[in-house]
Design a protein around this nucleic acid. Sequence first.
DNA 1: ATATTCCCCTGGAAGC
DNA 2: TGCTTCCAGGGGAATA
Length: 277
Amino acid sequence: MPELPEVETVRRSLEPRLLGAVIRDVSASVDNLRLPVNVDTLRRFCCGRRICALRRRAKFLVVVFDNGAGLILHLGMTGAFRIVPESTPYTVHERVAWTLSGGRSWRFADVRRFGSVRPTHFPDAGGDPPELAHLGIEPLAPAFDGAHLYRLSRGRRRPIKNLIMDQTMVVGVGNIYASEALFRAGIHPARPAGRVGRASASRLATAIREVLEEAIAAGGTTLRDFRDPDGSEGMFQVHLAVYGRQAGDCPRCGMAAGIRRVVMAGRSSFYCRGCQR
DNA sequence: ATATTCCCCTGGAAGC
DNA sequence: TGCTTCCAGGGGAATA
């Protein structure tokens, strides 16, 4: 369940350990994750390269090399990184390994293989690679506010929850934080996006920003698989107000068994039937 | 043009 | 006990 806070937690953990490292070799134990993994191509892109930056865009990690190339990484559902001594035996689900200067090995494990590892070129320093050009606005950017969300939602009949999870609209919000943000804003997840008014859009934009920032501060949410590169679990799951709490009492309005679970667009969605309209 | 459905993949839990 | 089914859900292609 890595969403923006989990990916940012991973980025912050990896950054100090990867910056300045030189990649000596790459190996892979599978030829496809979510996308094909071509180890020869990876070697051509990575070997001899120094890592200059580690960015996050949406739920992607972006590794920037010293020559205008780099990697786009996605954790999928069960992806995890660790950095270990080169001699450390591989675990069964470690799919890709980069040998780094200093005798270290940077490992990508992914049980369900929904993750991805893509080499890329950057058209300009600091910009997104073309593969990520379709992505919408970063919710923690200053330009993301109620007015922006209001404009995005005009004329759209799809449920507001589906819209805020649409990565071409606003990025980083997945199934867990969508339910949490809508709860905080008092908006029913199935409300048509175009029927969300200015005041509600403003509350929702604020709620999205706040829940993501609080989750980052807590090191993310661990419900099943998520671990940071040190193997630690996140702590935000104890702060979830509605996600996974069907039949629970509402922590805001107090309605007994007020929390409902419904399926929207194939995803479990949680809301309080007493205080979300 | 917009929005939904399907598929990828594995393991743990629940059901029979 | 053991087998089957369901569920988790991000992203992107296919489809309506």
